[in-house]
């Protein structure tokens, strides 16, 4: 018989955390380079690239300054926030009911619906069939609905959520039904409170997608007052590429590599801030925590 002892546990923790430490280093070192690149002053960079370490007083925030002081930066950020919030809300509003309904294994027509959904997942019809629908049939040119609605439901997300709903023991739902609740109420009162980790996970996936989206805004939006942040950052970066045609006095305080890196770090920032908050729900083990057998 194999018995767990304190020594086993200690060795196990050493192994697991050692592994995590190695992974951490593999990830952190290149990331550190990205941060340093964004802070490297132009003259240092032009002399010999990004040094691995610089004292804080040697840092240059010129790249960030160029991004943040852009005249349309506040507007673009606001647009991005609107697109992300509305998009994620709409996505969850469509994904949760779909996943919940499909998690009922006895639902007549369930297999057919899953098959129909999977079918659309397999066949990527390309840009034009979707463009014709959104721009021509629906007339959503220059309308942020064109950014928010078409990608609202992701098949992977639906199926993952469905799997989680399936994992909720039938007895809990049954006991609620005994109390006279209908299936909507079961979803609202019993299932959703138990599913916070997966709601947050899928919500995060959707949010990240909307936050980073730059192609559909370029395609559908003409008015610059509607453009979100990724489009603006892209324009700033591309602008630096065409230096031979830029015949006026651009403030060249930052290298293109600094600009690229700071653009990435700026877009990352909100997600970095949100994630620890989401993590709180992850570590608590919300799901099934209160279930007594």
């Amino acid at each position: 018989m194999f018995r767990s002892t304190n020594r086993d546990e200690w060795g196990f923790q050493l192994f697991v955390n050692g592994l995590l430490l190695i992974v951490l280093l593999i990830i952190v070192i290149p990331l550190w380079r990205v941060i340093m690149t964004s802070l490297t002053p132009l003259d240092v960079y032009m002399r010999g690239g990004t040094p691995m370490f610089q004292w804080p007083w040697e840092w240059s925030f010129a790249a960030y300054e160029q991004m943040l002081t852009h005249p349309t930066f506040p507007r673009a950020t606001l647009n991005s926030v609107i697109i992300t919030l509305c998009g994620t809300a709409l996505s969850l509003f469509l994904t949760v009911p779909l996943a919940y309904a499909l998690s009922a294994r006895t639902l007549p027509g369930r297999r057919l619906i899953i098959a129909l959904i999977l079918f659309t997942f397999l066949f990527h019809v390309g840009l034009i069939p979707v463009y014709l629908l959104v721009a021509k049939t629906l007339g959503w040119t220059n309308n942020i609905l064109a950014i928010i609605v078409p990608p609202a439901v992701g098949v992977t997300n639906v199926l993952v959520m469905m799997r989680f709903f399936e994992g909720i023991p039938e007895e809990i739902k049954e006991s609620a039904r005994m109390d006279g609740a209908n299936d909507l109420q079961v979803l609202w009162r019993i299932v959703l409170p138990l599913s916070k980790p997966i709601l947050l996970t899928i919500g995060l996936f959707y949010a990240v997608h909307y936050w980073n989206e730059f192609f559909t805004p370029i395609l559908y939006l003409n008015d610059q007052n509607l453009q979100p942040l990724p489009v603006l950052l892209r324009n700033i970066l591309i602008g630096q590429n065409f230096s031979e045609y830029v015949d006026y006095d651009v403030s060249r305080a930052a290298s293109i590599e600094s600009l690229k890196s700071s653009a990435v770090l700026l877009t990352m920032l909100p997600m970095v801030l949100v994630y620890p908050w989401i993590q709180r729900y992850f570590t608590k083990g919300t799901l099934l925590g209160g279930v007594k057998e």
Binding site: P97, L98, A104, P108, L184
Partner: peptide, 14 residues
Amino acid sequence: HRWYYLLLIAPLTY
């Protein structure tokens, strides 16, 4: 399962 079908209306329209 009528409540489930109600839930399906919006996603399936989408």
